[in-house]
């Protein structure tokens, strides 16, 4: 019974690594570029390169690959669902038939495309987890707020958005802990969550969900009160203890990230043409 074991999204792993020391804005920019690149990539060679670069980042950030992969566990179902759906219902006409499943037909092209989309999902999760693993929620919010600041004139409430995000991130582990505690308390009263049909299992969750919501609302109330008590009033004229500043290493990192994202995104044929 250790829920925190299975949910690694949003978790920060404090380390003394070059990746951790980067300015959060650099990391946010890199992740944004790579996310776009992941959607633009046309063939597997792009993903191979991405995997290589991400591998380098993981090593530099001193994160164990096993821990990173464990973060994929919550999306295994989504991943399988997407891949299977894409194999049979991709809408691709023709191609080499690999196998049949009743009326369903799997072609080589469809399977490849399904795997491709699977890679895309994994890539997205890994890239974003790397950001949260190496950036403390505090830095992350600061970074987002500063990055959104130019859009404030357009009415984007940068500070408020950033604050909402920090609070949400901050409470993931707390709520998980709370859930675990309530599950245990109800198990101690004879609750069983793994028996019966879907309906019974869903009903068995009521004794967990009700207290969880009650406590989430209570926490929200308390937090709002604590913020008010410390005269919190949003972003105007708010100063901070640690100002963000770009260092030379941020320049290098940004350059590397930009080059890498262009490299991922260029299709194989373009490379062929460029190299010959």
């Amino acid at each position: 019974m250790e829920l925190t074991r299975y949910v690694t999204i949003g978790q920060y792993l404090p380390r003394e690594s070059p990746i951790h020391r980067l300015d959060p804005r650099t990391k946010i920019a890199a992740v944004t570029m790579w996310t776009v690149a992941i959607f633009v990539v046309r063939d597997f060679s792009g993903y191979a390169l991405l995997a290589l670069v991400l591998g380098g980042v993981v090593v530099a950030a001193q994160i164990s690959p096993g821990y990173l992969l464990r973060g994929l566990r919550p999306i295994v179902f989504l991943l399988l669902f997407t891949v299977v759906l894409n194999i049979f219902f991709s809408g691709l006409q023709g191609g080499t038939v690999l196998f049949r499943l009743g009326p369903l037909l799997a072609t080589r092209e469809a399977v490849l495309r399904a795997l491709f989309i699977g890679c895309r999902l994994v890539g997205l999760v890994v890239v974003t987890s790397l950001l949260t693993f190496t950036t403390s929620p505090m830095e992350l919010t600061d970074g987002i707020e500063r990055s959104l600041r130019p859009f404030r004139r357009l009415g984007v409430p940068a500070h408020e958005l950033a604050m909402m995000m920090t609070i949400a991130l901050r409470f993931i582990p707390t709520l998980l802990e709370e859930t675990e505690k309530i599950i245990k308390a109800q198990m101690a009263r004879g609750a069983q969550f793994d028996q019966g049909n879907v309906l019974r299992r869903a009903r068995a969750l009521v004794p967990v969900l009700v207290p969880l919501f009650v406590s989430a609302f209570r926490r929200a109330d308390e937090l709002a009160l604590a913020m008010l008590a410390r005269c919190y009033r949003g972003g105007e004229h708010r100063t901070r203890m640690r100002e963000l500043s770009f260092a030379p290493r941020d320049g290098i990192a940004l350059a590397v990230a930009t080059v890498a994202s262009v490299v991922f995104a260029l299709p194989y044929e373009v490379w062929g043409r460029l190299l010959h």
Binding site: Q186, A188, G190, Q192, P207, P211, V214
Partner: peptide, 27 residues
């Protein structure tokens, strides 16, 4: 029988009776 810290956080039923009855019903 295990009573956790702040056990009142595990109350969920509509009435006191039903909440106390949760354990025996599970039995």
């Amino acid at each position: 029988g295990l009573v956790f810290q702040y056990p009142e956080h595990q109350l969920f039923e509509e009435t006191v009776f039903d909440d106390v009855a949760y354990g025996p019903r599970n039995l």
